[in-house]
Design a protein around this nucleic acid. Structure first.
Length: 92
DNA sequence: CAGATGACGGCCC
DNA sequence: GGGGCCGCCATCT
């Protein structure tokens, strides 16, 4: 996850798949929620399969992720991300 | 120790 | 196109 290029986003499923676990999207989310406050990981670059923030609208996490994404130059469409920015990322 | 839950995904109706 | 159901694994009651 830390290797995700700036300006790109991955879905939970993609992250899981990249790590060698095709159907463990949920596990990724479980892991992410355990992240400490001051983490340096780009967790905000990870969204669900619909390209949306995985938090309810108006929630704290939602706004945090949204602002971080915009800060990195990622635009949001109707609470959803541009579909072109994820899926094009391949591990090295 | 057993059951429920969760930053999700994919398939079927 | 939308909604519901099941699967999956680590944690939390």
């Amino acid at each position: 996850m830390a290797a995700i290029p700036l300006g790109k986003v991955l879905t939970y499923g993609q992250v899981a798949k990249l790590c060698g676990f095709p159907n463990h999207a949920r596990y990724v989310g479980t892991t992410l929620k355990c992240l400490p406050k001051g983490t340096t990981l780009p967790w905000h670059r990870v969204v669900n399969a619909k390209g949306e923030i995985s938090f309810p609208r108006g929630s704290e996490g939602y706004h945090r992720q949204l602002s971080l994404l915009e800060k990195e130059g990622i635009a949001i469409k109707n609470d959803k991300l541009s579909l072109a920015i994820y899926g094009s990322y391949s591990p090295s």
